[in-house]
Structure formats: C-alpha cells, structure tokens
Design a binder for these strands. Structure first.
Lengths: 338, 338
DNA sequence: TTCTAGGACGCAAACGTTTGCGGTCAAGCG
DNA sequence: CGCTTGACCGCAAACGTTTGCGTCCTAGAA
C-alpha cells in the first residue's frame, strides 16, 4: 500500500512533464521512441498502475460493461456470463455483474449502480415487470435485451425462437402418436413464457387437434413447483402419456417427481427436457438452445455498437436477432402405446 | 443521451453552490432539511445520476470488488459468484467479474485490469502457477484467496479441508470392505489436488493398508480426461471395485465412462462423487461441499476488512478459514462382494 | 448595544488523467 | 544569415466530486 504511483511521480523521476509521460504511455506519435522507452521503463520499475477511473472521467466514457441477469448459479446464465466475459476481455472491457433474482426492486438498484459507474453499455435479461425508472436508466446508454423481451420498449434484442422450440418438441410427440401431452411452463408475465406456450398450442393447431387444457401447468420456474405440479397431474384420472417442459428448472422438477413416483422413462412416460444442462446422464431428449452463440452475438453487437457510433444514431431500425433452437433426440421419448 | 446532468446543473437550477448540493445529497448535517428536500427534488426531476468514478477518485477508493475465478459455467463457481454478488449488493458494492480459464497470462491481465479499476478488494481462486507480477498487483489492496491456495504467500484464505473430504470418502469405502479403490484426481500443481490425494492416502494409512498406486490417476480436471482414464483403468486385469473422485468434472467424466461401459452402480462398482452438482438424478453419494457458506464467509470477511481498517494493519495473524466437507450418502456405494 | 456562537452556505483546491495549444530547438532551404 | 518546418515537449484546463476553511447572517447572552 505504498502510496499510489501516479504520472506525476514518473514525470518527477525523469524530469519530464506529466503530459509527456501520459502521451508516452498512450503511445502517442509526438513522443520520441527514446523517451517512450525511458518512460515505460521507470513506469514499470516504480510499479505504476494506470487509474482507469480518472481516465474514464477525462475521456468521458469508461471501459466497463454491465451484465444483469436473474441468477448465476443456473448453468444457463453461467454460459451466458462466460461468453460475455470472454467478449469483454477480448475487447479490453471489464464485466460488471449484477444479479436480480427477478426482483424488480433489486433490478432497479443494480441498474442504477451500473449507471452510476457509467458503464459503456449494458446487457440485461429483464425481470418480468421492470420498474419505469429502470427503463429510464437503461436508455441513458447503449443496451441490449437478452433472452427475454420487455414489451412496449424499443431496444435491440437477442433471443431464442421460443415458439419454434416448443413447437418442435410438441410436434415430435404428436407425430409419435401422443395426444395427452402435458405442458410444464412458466407464467405468462415473461415473453419467453408466452412464446413457449404458443409453440405448444401451435403444434396442436397445425395438426388439427385440441389442446389438452387440463394438462397445462403454469407457474414460477422453480423445481419445487414443477415437481408438485407434475405429481398432481399424475393423480388425475386421465393421465398424460408425455410431457414437454419449458424451462430447465421446471424440467429438473419434473424429473424429480418422476424419480419419486418411480416411473420408467420412456416406458411409462415420454419426456422432452429443456436446455443443455447436464441431462446427458439421464439420456434426456431436450430442446437444445444455442446459448453460447446467442451470448457471443449479443456481446459482439454491443461492443461493436460501443466502439463505432458512440454518438448513436437514433431511429435506426432496432436490431433483433432470433436464434433457432433444435430438438436433441436422445432416449426419453418413445412412440405412443395404447 | 441528453448531456450528463451534474451537480453543477442542479446548483445552477437552484441558485446554490455545487458544494451545498453535494452536501445535501450526501445528507451532510450542515445543510438545512429544507434545502436538502429541494435539492433531492430537482435532482430526481433533472434525472441526476451520481458519477461514482468521480466520487471514487476524490474519495480515494472505489466501491468495486473484484472476483477472479477460473470458470463460471461450472456450477461450483456459479454458486461462489452468486454468494459474492449478494454480499456485495447488500453492502453497496459492485462485483467486477473476471474469468481466467486457469491461464496465468489471462489471470495477470485480469488482475491488472481490476487493479487499474482500483477495486476496493479482490477475491481470487488462483490459477496453478500465478505469475510473479500477478501477486505484486494483488498485494496492493486487500485480497483473499478462495478454495485454492498459492504456496509461499501470506494472505487470508477461505477453503475446504480437502484432505478430510477425501479421507471421509475413501475411509467409507474401506470400511465397506473395498480395497481396490481407484482415485481420480487433479494434478498436484494445485493445493487442492495435493490435499485431496493426501486424504485418499491417509485413509489407507490409518487402516494399515497399502495404497493401490496402480489405481491412482491424476490429470487436468476435465471430463474427457477422467472418462479416458477410467476406461483404461477398467481395461486392467485387476480392476477396481470402487472409485473416488476429487473434482466435479472428473466425477462427470467417470460417470460418462461408466455409462458407456454399461456398468451398474453400485452393483459392478461403487462410486463417490464430488460436490453438489445435480447428481441427485443419478443418486450419487458425494463429498458434499459447503460452497455457499464458504463464499459468504469469504465475502463478508473481505467487505468487513474493507470497511474497518482501510489503513490495514500489517503483521496481524493471517486469517485462514477452513470449512469441513461432509459425506453425503445416497445410493452409489455398496459393501464389497468378492 | 456589543459580542459570541453557531447554523447555513460558498470558494477553491484536490483526486489522476487527457489533450488543445503553444513553445523551443535544430535542421534544411533559399 | 534569416526563414520555415517539423519533431518533441510543457502549460494548463477540464472531467465531476468531496471537503477544509472561510464567510455571512441571525439569535441569544452579557
């Protein structure tokens, strides 16, 4: 903790001016190579470490980038964060991580903190109902919505074609002869919840079938909800012969219930999981999500946006990138047997 | 992006001085309540957002905290990060996340970046061989080592009793009658690797048995290594009857190989896993780690340290907190049958 | 009335950089 | 020799806050 070394110290040490030292360290062309070398040498020998806050203040923009997500224990968001971190590192930015737990109040607090840090841009997976002020803070700088989309707001969005994903899964089961297909999904306050349910419904519509409304369960995307919901579903007289899940936690919950009920998959029940969590062990067929790709695309977009038009051109068309999920077939689905 | 609102703007708007406005917003006692109210009102109506970089520069310390970990996709580190994020949020700090991928060069770059940001403190899960300069940068401020420990360096450490963990697991298998117990572990360049192997060895020593050296496999902690290593182990004439794993990725690799070889657990082989990844589905007995507790303790320690003695009292005893793992028995171990 | 106390606020410096502008000096040209 | 030119470098302002100190004014005490 030996008092901070600043440009002034280097300057004094070499009988140079602060500005010369500054220019030397930023490799400005109007400084001779000889001087640059001397400056660099004493800088490192004195243990100089640049003060990015001071630089940011003077330059008017920082090199920080904010990432706001509901959770980081979740493998899904872990992958997102990793991709973002790599993007940032590669471009000389730093990642400021904020966890909201899907709480709008916490979300507002986090976004405010990032705003105060004058991040160069933000990537956010918005909570169900962001506060008005949260949006006001977001629009102060470049920002991108990831995965989820808040309605009535114009901002770039990088997401997944949720509808297509669940259409694929449901349609596959229908084609295998299943009719009693349960749906375990999130509530409709999230754009993802709405899209996924629609995909499930579309699969029935496209084949001229009725949606089995009594098999649809919507709730908070947590394991315990899904486990309970599935268990109660299994109590019904007219049981499902298959189940599609619309979230990784929900999928985990369903598997938990299945294990508890000692059901054999796919003998007693066909299951389609969601996402690429380590389901490989369970040989689960899932809706595969290009998580890493989407996050990379998102990160690169934001960083390019930050670099290029720092001015920002309003009323340019709002960018939307929608990535397609895929159906990864393993061993948890089988044709319907009466 | 309507030009930044600063204290000056608020001051001009109210015909006050900048310092009064500043004091009003920081709730200084020498400002009348009436003025404070007026200031707060116009501040929010103008959309004022404090500039934490400027504040940090003036105050001499920022509110940022750095977290440096090898990976964030890994559930283990995800849990760590979440706990740290919660600690920070609660204490009014922001989390700057850096991923090293266990590459010392990247690590140095990240630590440098955090130093330049003048973080108030850092928590780091060090790579196997940190560069000299990395350590020089770390000691500039309060820092804590998490999980892993770099040798020959005096700094607080929050970790797990790795030796006890593997002792527990191995001893359990020995007590069940197993003798041919394989060990799948990480290389010895990590303190964790060394400790865990020692625990395995101690279990044999404590029972007067020889360590089955031909069943010990050390390598990079990756799934593919463990899968290959276990497969080759199974080729041996004198096969193991049980296996303990010393890392979650290694455990996953072993499970992968087991699945591929179509072995029945615990009928053909007893297995003890590592950590609390979603092994619940495989009913795996594991060495349970108090990950969240340890991270919370670490975060709270660092933040308290930052708050309290910002001066820093050298030659105080170096704090070490060592948390005990536990043996979580599920259904993957069985007594030895000849 | 005068003096003091203290409440409420303004002035200006400082934090560490960056950068526009100006200055010095030597070389090259006419 | 005088001039221009370009290479190299210094001065000082500015970024937005915080804070020690000084100032003003009003109320209460002597």
């Amino acid at each position: 903790m030996a008092q901070e070394v600043t440009l002034k110290d280097i300057a004094r040490c070499l009988s140079l001016s602060v500005s010369t030292v500054a220019r030397a360290l930023t490799d400005s062309p109007e400084i001779s190579e000889a001087t640059k070398a001397r400056v660099r040498a004493t800088a490192s020998s004195l243990g100089y470490v640049a003060h990015s806050a001071a630089r940011a203040m003077r330059r008017g923009h920082s090199t920080l980038v904010g990432l706001i997500i509901p959770d980081i224990e979740n493998q899904f968001y872990g992958t997102l964060a990793k991709a973002m971190a790599q993007c940032c590192d590669q471009a000389g930015h730093q990642l400021l991580l904020a966890i909201t737990e899907d709480d709008p109040v916490s979300e507002e607090r986090q976004v405010r903190a990032l705003s105060e840090a004058r991040v160069a841009g933000m990537v956010i997976v918005p909570s169900p109902k962001p506060l008005r002020n949260t949006l006001n803070l977001l629009v102060r700088g470049p920002w991108v919505q990831l995965i989820r989309q808040v309605s009535d707001v114009e901002a770039p969005w990088f997401g997944i074609d949720d509808e297509a994903g669940l259409y694929l899964a449901t349609r596959h089961l229908i084609d295998q002869g299943h009719r009693r297909i349960a749906y375990m999904g999130g509530t409709l306050d999230l754009s993802t919840g709405r899209g996924r349910l629609k995909g499930y419904e579309q699969a029935f519509a496209a084949t001229g079938l009725e949606v089995p409304r009594d098999l649809v369960r919507l709730g908070r995307p947590r394991m315990d909800f899904a486990a309970d919901a599935f268990a109660s579903l299994w109590q019904q007289a007219d049981r499902p012969t298959a189940v599609v899940t619309a979230g990784s936690r929900l999928c985990a919950g369903v598997l938990e219930a299945i294990k508890h009920l000692k059901l054999a998959v796919p003998h007693d029940l066909s299951v389609v999981g969601f996402g690429d969590a380590p389901w490989w062990y369970a040989d689960l067929s899932t809706i595969g999500l290009p998580v890493r790709e989407i996050a990379m695309a998102c990160g690169e977009f934001l960083l390019r946006h930050i670099r290029d038009h720092r001015g920002g051109d309003p009323n340019a068309p709002v960018y939307q990138a929608i990535h397609r999920p895929s159906l990864v077939l393993r061993a948890s689905t089988a044709p319907f047997r009466a």
